[in-house]
Structures are given as structure tokens and as C-alpha cells.
Design a protein around this nucleic acid. Structure first.
Lengths: 242, 242
DNA sequence: CTTAGATAGTGTAAATATGACAAAAAGTAG
DNA sequence: CTACTTTTTGTCATATTTACACTATCTAAG
């Protein structure tokens, strides 16, 4: 019986354990993605905690005692971007002992997708907060490089299955913008005509009858995202042809 | 500034917070699935902690201070089933305040798929441990009904994308068994010929040249799972025709 | 040995989805 | 009105999916 401590089904031992060795701090780290200049970017802050001074860090905070995990993530997101009601979802928990130099901290990573244009600079920490292209992020604090990596892989999987790419674009976007977004996030080259055919069969695009302005060529039509859960049968997997 | 506590980037406040309100107990709850008698079953234990005495509970334990989350899950699984090296994956974290009557406990749910025939009864707690068909689980302790529900949905999504159904069957199985498994987990009716064609195109089935014994009819051929990551392009989604 | 009973195993044709591919249309700038 | 840039659109060959029913193989009973 050294393998597992079944005393934990005894209430007194539970109480004891709950108050001693098993306690840890709980945090949430938000991986906030944006899309700008044909690049997938992530919002990071310069860390000032030893031994990671100067390294980049995800936006995280401890979870408050009266708060659930989703609420904590929403609070962090709101505080950093000023945004409410944006795409926000838990990815998974990271809890290696030793992942935090000050003690045991279990962190839930959340992914958020925001329309970068809607983002208000709330950089109360004097310029320590910046968008970084995901493929140009150098060293990170804690295990945040791993968290970012896992979360990015998660996003790549998810965007193939569900129509969430829109969350990263302005409310009105062109089909080329949308295609570029997919090409960049998935690191593939897509066929324009096939991409459009697939998308229109999904029925989530709404032609809003407007066009681009101020471009020195034929303006592209603008679309918006119409939630329309009709034909999600095959997801978007087949957008991809290598 | 009332929205988020940015003092957490100050090391002294971090240390303070890490040692006061933000601490919580960390646990892992394993949702251990098995498949038997044409039913998807989950291994549960009768809870003896007030106020949930007599209710059913997932198999969980506190995470030890020197242990990471995956290790904790593997330990619990080993202790309860005697099994090592089986399918085990983190699903997500549950951390509502108040989810545990004795204080704040953050729990990571893990899903495990086991070949129920390999399971050794390690019921040191006198018969409180039992397999329950997932659709016949009545009241559960804590928020375990929610955890079970989320995890089951996760399994249903995942089994459509990756060839993990095998994990629930004996090493040698028939195609009909495999089809039944999918039908029951996904709650759909599948076409025998289409199911087989799709599966053989995936290239993960190995005909082991044996057949069923002791059946009063034509015996079915036995197959085993051959890890063969060739053609996972479309997953198994198209197994399904409604 | 024959037959009945039970379940396993197999093929094909029609519809749909995919992948590869290029020319015409719509605007701006000079 | 011409040159330039970028958007938009269709078709055909191939692959995949769906719908559908009969034959093969074994045991058991007579």
C-alpha cells in the first residue's frame, strides 16, 4: 500500500493533508493570441521576478479565493487588454514541482483569441507589455515556453475543427485575410478557390455587401462571421492540401 | 487596477500571496473507463466523506509535493487497477470555489482507457470499488458528475479523431466488437461494410490469423492494433453515418 | 450426414467532396 | 484609355462517402 494513500478517504486524514504538504498556489496563465501584419502574435510581458528578470512571461496571476478558474482568466484578460466577452478557453494544467522558483504553483493555461484592433493598451507597467510574433519569441520565464508551445499546438488542432479563426480578425474581413490567417497559423499553403468553396459550404460567412476602400486595385468584398451551426460535419480539416 | 492584482509581478507580494489566501489543495481525479458486456463503464468508489457518504466518487487523491500531475494520475491508476502503461491523459482542471466541502481543492481530471480484462481487483476498501455503466451512474459526490460528463464528452470527441478505441478492447478483438464499441460510445449506428473499409484504410488493424473459439456460429477473425501512423489524415470522423 | 440456425464477411453503384488548375473582372494610377 | 494590381470565379479528374443484401462459415440438433 505504499503506492497510494488511501487514507485520503478518511476524513481526518483529508483534513490534515489538505492543510499541510498538499497545498499549492494556483495561478492562471493566459496565452493571448492576436493577428496583425500577417503574423500570429502573442501578448507577453517582461518578467521582473528573479531569476527570470528580463525574460518574457505569459500574462498570469494567482487565482483568488472566491474565484473560479474561468473567472480568473477573464479577469486577467480584461485587465491586460480591456476586453470582455472574447474567446477564452482552458487548455490544460501545468503542475511540475519546481516549475516556479518560489514554491509549488499549479497553473492552468487559457487561450484567448482577440481582434487585435479592439485591444486597448492597458500597459500600466510601463511598456513591459508587448505583442510578439509567436515564431520570434526568445527565452521565456518559468515553463512558459512549454505552455506557449502546447497552447499553440492546441490552437492549430482546434482551428482545423472549429470555425474560430474569425476571432482573430476584424469584424469585417476579406476572404484573403482569412486564408492568410489559416496559412500562417497552420503553416501551410492553401488553394484560393478550394478554400472559398469549403468555407461557403460551411455556411458561416456572411457577405455584408461592402468592399474594401482605399486600395489601389480591385477592392475585395467584406464578410462577417455568422454563427450557423449547420454543417460542421467535417470541420475545416480539408481546407488543407499539402 | 482593482480588476487585477499586478503586484504579483513584485516578488515580495508574490511570496506573501503564495503563502496566504491563494493556496489550495491539488488533487487528481481519474475517470477510468472500461468496456464490458457491450457497455462503457467507469470505475467508481463509494464515498465516505461527509456530506457525500454513500454517493459515488471518481478515483482521486491529493498530489504529493514531489510529484507532477501525470505522475499522480499514474499512481492512482496503478493503485486502483494494478495497471501501468495504459492510456492516460489529462482532460482539464476543475477549480470552482466550493467544489469541495473541506476547502479549496483544484482537481485535474485524467481519462484512462483500460482493457477491463487486465484489471486486477485491488479493492482494499472492501467492495466499495465497482464498475458502473456510464449511463447508469446515479448521484455522485462533489462535482464528480460534472467531471464525468465533461470527460465523457471529451472521449467522444477524441475517439472520432484518434484510434484509441482499441485501448478498451482485449489485445485480440473482432471487428464487430470494435464496431459495437464505437456505436456505444458515440451513440450512433454504423454500417458494417463502411466501417470496415474505413478502418482498413487507416492501416491500424493487424490480422493475426486467429479466430474466435467456442461460438455456436461462424467464428470471427481476430485482429490486433498495429500502431501505424501513416494515414491519419481524416481521423475516424467519417466512420459515422446517421 | 443433413439441415437449420446464427453470425461473419464481402462488392458495387450513385452521390458527394476533394484537388489541381487559369482566365476574366474590377478597381486605381498615370 | 492603358497599364497595373488584386479579386473573383468554374471545371474536370479523382477520391471518398454512402446506401444497400447476399453468400460463407461455423455449431448444434436431428
Amino acid at each position: 500500500m505504499s503506492e497510494a494513500n488511501f487514507k485520503t478517504e478518511n476524513i481526518n486524514t483529508w483534513i490534515t493533508e489538505l492543510n499541510t504538504e498538499a497545498k499549492a498556489a494556483i495561478s492562471v496563465d493566459c496565452v493571448i493570441f492576436g493577428y496583425e501584419d500577417n503574423q500570429l502574435k502573442v501578448l507577453l510581458i517582461e518578467c521582473n521576478m528573479p531569476p527570470f528578470e528580463g525574460k518574457l512571461s505569459l500574462l498570469g496571476d494567482l487565482v483568488k479565493s472566491n474565484e473560479n478558474l474561468d473567472e480568473a482568466a477573464a479577469r486577467i484578460l480584461k485587465a491586460r487588454t480591456g476586453l470582455n466577452n472574447v474567446y477564452l478557453e482552458q487548455v490544460r494544467a501545468f503542475g511540475d514541482p519546481g516549475r516556479h522558483p518560489l514554491g509549488r504553483v499549479i497553473s492552468m493555461s487559457y487561450v484567448s483569441l482577440i481582434k487585435i484592433q479592439d485591444y486597448e493598451v492597458l500597459d500600466i507597467d510601463q511598456k513591459r507589455l508587448k505583442w510578439f510574433p509567436v515564431d520570434q519569441v526568445e527565452e521565456m520565464a518559468f515553463d512558459h515556453a512549454k505552455i506557449l508551445n502546447v497552447t499553440l499546438n492546441w490552437l492549430q488542432d482546434r482551428i482545423k475543427e472549429r470555425p474560430i479563426g474569425f476571432e482573430l480578425l476584424p469584424k469585417k474581413f476579406t476572404l484573403i485575410q482569412l486564408q492568410n490567417l489559416y496559412e500562417i497559423i497552420l503553416n501551410v499553403k492553401l488553394d484560393k478557390r478550394n478554400f472559398r468553396r469549403k468555407l461557403s459550404s460551411l455556411g458561416v460567412l456572411k457577405d455584408i455587401g461592402e468592399s474594401q476602400k482605399d486600395v489601389a486595385h480591385r477592392p475585395a468584398k467584406l464578410y462577417s462571421f455568422a454563427e450557423n451551426r449547420s454543417e460542421q460535419k467535417n470541420g475545416l480539416s480539408s481546407l488543407i492540401n499539402f
